[in-house]
Write a protein that binds this DNA or RNA. Structure first.
Lengths: 237, 237
DNA sequence: AAGTGGTCTAGACCACGAA
DNA sequence: TCGTGGTCTAGACCACTTA
């Protein structure tokens, strides 16, 4: 049946209870001993769930007082993981996939390292040319851990935003990513693919995507620098 | 005496053991049961300490294998506001300022907008050429709200990290920033300044810096893309 | 004073990796 | 197979907030 730990199920249950206003913003959650009774588990397990809720901004835990439900719409982190198609959409482009090729491959070493794979593990590779307003704007090269997405190689044309598809079809919740951004210029091949003169500036975004600390995907996005930039909010020092 | 919890003491002890290379990079820490014996505590406590070490990037925990000591010098400082000289230092470059010019100017319109200035407000502008290992690597162009930094225009040569200087000399606490990263290629002027062929890829980082939600500075950094990349951790979706 | 979350113990069983 | 970390239990006492 369910392979996920109990604390994860409880976390999701409380999260959805908050989102459905069963627990209202500003209220206190039931106390930890009460939650233990409600879910028939030990306090350790409840605390792990509450820890998750807190880390994702759903509640504020205060000793001596209780656990308050926050306005998650406001308190969510600004630096959210968004798929590139989502980002382009929000910049006002009309986005679609120009060409796509899905294949099952043995992962290159650097991908194996990032995704903590063993030597014989396979990945699903998705290569795409992304169009914005009908013109090529960039390339996407995704590598996804094969075990997690059986049959994905036959889903050509069934999605535009990969992350939404992973969530709806495979129940994979994307919780975080680590992005590295660099600049370069197009070589011959890239120039042909996205229809730019050789030597045009491009932004390259390498990302590893995680679902609860488990790496599930890595992706390299190459995009026309004249049509894309990357924004981020930094906090603390 | 010590008011801190045991797991915090153990965390600090192991952290300093890592920093002093008692536990070397790439080694595995003693297993959790062993650590229990070493510190005479239960596994819950040890796990809390290891969790802290992991969250701060000192170790990588892997089921079935062990807890590996990471190179903390590389993995530190995610999503914190760091000055560019600090970032370059952490990447292993020997950083210094090649040339510097400080002036008091009327702010350009786009700067006024970002810093919420009025028409007659002035800014202190600092233009610098940054050297890494003695070679030009990039340009810095800072605009700082004048009211906050009286006399800064006479501080030429008194600082290398601007943010540290603002903190120590003016008590300005930098709390957050909003960064936009884009790619481009050098034009004639930039090429001359940082000693690259025309058309070389560069990364441009535009930043607005805040002290408790008040904008205090904006800066444009232009840097040789072959020697710099930008990393960020995104959370939630 | 009573109830909250914070810390901690001493066990147990399971899933995973390496040999 | 054996040792690792991952999860979980059923307690206990402490520190803090509120009333």
């Amino acid at each position: 049946m369910s392979k996920s730990p109990i604390y994860m199920d409880i976390f999701k249950k409380i999260k959805s209870d908050i989102q459905s206003s069963f627990y209202k913003i500003g209220d206190l959650l039931p106390s930890e001993p009460e939650l233990c009774q409600i879910f028939s588990v030990s306090r350790t397990t409840i605390r792990k769930s509450v820890e998750l809720l807190e880390s994702q901004g759903y509640v504020k835990v205060q000793q001596g007082r209780g656990t308050e439900v926050l306005d998650y719409k406001i308190s969510q982190n600004l630096n959210k993981v968004t798929s590139f198609s989502e980002t382009l959409l929000s910049k006002g482009y009309d986005v679609c996939t120009g060409s796509i090729h899905i294949s099952k491959e043995c992962a290159p070493d650097y991908v194996k390292e990032k995704l903590l794979l063993k030597d014989n593990d396979f990945i699903i590779r998705i290569q795409r040319i992304i169009l914005a307003n009908g013109m090529p704007i960039g390339l996407l090269d995704n590598y996804i851990v094969e075990d997690l997405v059986p049959g994905l190689e036959n889903s050509c044309g069934k999605f535009s935003s990969l992350y939404s598809f992973l969530e709806s079809e495979y129940g994979i919740e994307i919780t975080s990513s680590f992005d590295t951004i660099k600049a370069s210029v197009t070589d011959f091949v890239t120039s042909k693919l996205i229809n730019l003169p050789i030597g045009s500036p491009i932004l390259i975004n390498n990302r590893v995507t995680y679902s609860y600390n488990r790496p599930i995907e890595c992706v390299c996005m190459t995009v026309d620098a004249s049509k894309y930039e990357f924004s981020v909010y930094l906090e603390g020092r």
